[in-house]
Structures are given as structure tokens and as C-alpha cells.
Design a protein around this nucleic acid. Structure first.
Lengths: 188, 188
DNA sequence: TGCTAAAACTAATCTTATTAGTATAATAGC
DNA sequence: GCTATTATACTAATAAGATTAGTTTTAGCA
């Protein structure tokens, strides 16, 4: 019963399942069932579940980076940074399963690099402000923490339902950016 | 072979193991071994692994709240908020396993309440500044996201090793607070 | 057409959580 | 002090999952 599976098909199905059901629910058993195949067959294409998860994370980080890049076309300065924040946040809300998959620790060089590329975008956006290297790093770490933390907490339902959370996000980003950019470039 | 186990002893051992090894590594099998007992025996004291995990989370949230309360004695205003942030951050760094356990989603009323009490502390600290309710909520959500996000990213080793991360944390908190408190109370 | 290698399979192992049912020791009531 | 009860630990078994070993099958190519 040759199914004509390959790495790509397995991965696409896995991505789709994780997007729909979340990381924890996606087992080799379920994935195999979905592909009409027995679990051990998947080992012909992947070393095991960990590798599949790593690939999902990689895919997600790359997709996110591409969306960010696309959204930043023709934008600069504070507007660009704000856009970055919102696109990132929206992605995490639209794809909670994939986002979760992407932020688990993997101790993997490729994952690390994919993450670094996204952080690197922020660095580029901040460059024109002409701040000191060290200050830049501080600012980016904080901004990243803010976005990431908010995304996680929102996803977990940690915020009550009463006040608009999207508004809170914009508000918080504005606060942080106001402080950061004023400190860095008092002229503007 | 009566071992004289009880809920408390099991929980203490579980907490210790999670603190040392991290959540994922602590299985009923390991916990039972550590207690010199067979896994099913644990069901005399807990409904199952989920309940043990929930209790660990609860313990952690309470311990964190107590540390925060203790550290806030005699402090007020901006200083108190800053102290809150640092105590929270330090706890997450000293007890990564427990912190992880505490922030997993449990869909549990008690957990929710314990978390709310910690957030409530921030609300108290912000009250004297006399801001609007809605603005307060926005500010707290952002601050919480910043602390939480930074704690997680630091723990995951997401930040490079070059620049002092503790310094980054203080820097970011300062930025955020500067923006937040200025916006709220221009006189200060 | 027949060979080779990839891709599927079955069977089995190991680990984990969990349930059912049993034995025993502590304890409460007499 | 004895007995009845109950809590606590046990063994045995089930179920789900990841993974490995070894086998069969089939597609593609010489």
C-alpha cells in the first residue's frame, strides 16, 4: 500500500493539525491516522515526533518572518515598529497552536537562527534612531518581552473579558515606545 | 508496608522534584520511586497527575504572592512597583520549574483566583496614582506582559549572553513605567 | 525483466497514566 | 483488649503513546 508520502506531505498535515488542535493533541498516532498510514511509517520521513515538532516550529517562524517583512514594506520609523508589533500579535492570536509550537525550547541552531532573524528585524527598524548599541538591545529585549508576554497571556485567557484586550495591547506598546524613543532621540 | 504518606508529604516531594528537574520530567513513576512507593498508591492521595500539578501551581502562586507582599512592606509609589517587578522576575529565575508549573493553563477557579490576587497587588500599587479604571487595566496588562514575557524569554535562553540581561530588565521596566506614570499623573 | 532502495507493514518493547480489585495495618468504638 | 471499619498500600491489568527491529512490497531504473 504505497501512499506516496513524503516529508512535505507529512509536515503539511502536521502543521494543519497543530493549527487546529494545538501542539499537545497532535500525536504520531493521530498524524498517522490522518495520513492513512501506521505510526511506524512516519519514521521513514522523520526521526521522530521531536523532529516533526521542530520542523513545525521552523515553518511557523519563517511564515511569521515573511508576514512581518511583507507588512513592513514602505514603512519606517515608529510606524514600522508599531506595525511589527501588531502583525506579530495578530499572528499569535490567529494561530495559537502554531505559535505555541514555535516558542517551545528546542535547543536547536536552526530554530535559534529563525528567531534571531525576527529579532533582527526589530534591530533594523531601530537603527535609524541612532541609539547606542547597548541601549538598542535593552529596548528590543523589552519590546519583545512585551509582545511575547501579551500574546501568551491573551491566549491563555489570563485577561478578564471586560476591557478590550486589543486596545490594551496598543496602549501598552504605545507606552513602551513613547518611553523608548523619547529616551533615545529627544529631538523627535 | 505502611509508609505513612499523606497529601502534604507527596506534594512537598513533588514540589521539590519540579523545582529541581522541571515539570515535564516529573512523572508519577518518578514521584512514586522517590517516595518509596508504587505509582497507584499515589491515587490514595490525589486524583491523578493533573491534580498534583494543579496543587504545585497553587503552592507556587501563593508562595510568590507571599514573597511579593513581604517585599512591599513599607514601600509605596513607583518604588513599590519597581520592587514588585524585580521580586517577581527573580522568583521566576530562581525557580524556573515551579514558575513553569504555575503558568500552564489549568482552567481552574482556585488557580485563577491565586493569579488574580497577584495582579490585584499591582492594582493596589497603582491606585494612589489616581488614574482612570480603564487606563489602570491597560497599564497593568502591559506591565504584567512585560514581566512575564521577559521571565520566560530569559529562562529559555532566548537572549544572547553578551549584554547583561538583568540590566535589560531594569531598563525595560523603567521605560515602561516612565511612560505609564507620566501619562497618568503629569505633575510628578 | 529483474535488482535495488525506499516506503510501507507487523510485531514487539518501553514508558506512562490510570482502574479494578485485594490485602493489611491503623484506628475507633465497644 | 478485641473487633469492625477504613485508609493505604499492593498486584495485576488496560490503554495510549513513542519507538525499534525486522519483513514485505512496490516503484523506478539498469
Amino acid at each position: 500500500m504505497r501512499k506516496g508520502l513524503d516529508r512535505e506531505k507529512v509536515l503539511q498535515t502536521a502543521i494543519q493539525l497543530v493549527d487546529q488542535l494545538g501542539m499537545e493533541k497532535v500525536t504520531l498516532a493521530l498524524l498517522a491516522k490522518e495520513l492513512g498510514v501506521r505510526p511506524p511509517s512516519l519514521y521513514n520521513h522523520f526521526r521522530g515526533l521531536q523532529e516533526i515538532r521542530k520542523e513545525i516550529a521552523l515553518h511557523t517562524l519563517r511564515e511569521l518572518e515573511e508576514m512581518l517583512l511583507r507588512s513592513l514594506i514602505g514603512k519606517a520609523g515608529e510606524e514600522a515598529i508599531r506595525e511589527f508589533c501588531h502583525v506579530y500579535y495578530e499572528y499569535s492570536q490567529k494561530h495559537p497552536g502554531l505559535y505555541q509550537a514555535a516558542i517551545i525550547v528546542y535547543e536547536d541552531r536552526q530554530i535559534q537562527q529563525a528567531g534571531d532573524r525576527i529579532v533582527g528585524l526589530l534591530l533594523e527598524l531601530l537603527r535609524p534612531f541612532g541609539m547606542e548599541e547597548t541601549q538598542c538591545i535593552h529596548i528590543i529585549r523589552g519590546l519583545r518581552s512585551l509582545i511575547h508576554g501579551f500574546s501568551m497571556l491573551k491566549q491563555q485567557g489570563a485577561f478578564g473579558l471586560d476591557v478590550q484586550t486589543d486596545e490594551s495591547f496598543s496602549f501598552a506598546v504605545d507606552l513602551y515606545l513613547a518611553g523608548a524613543l523619547k529616551k533615545a532621540n529627544p529631538k523627535e
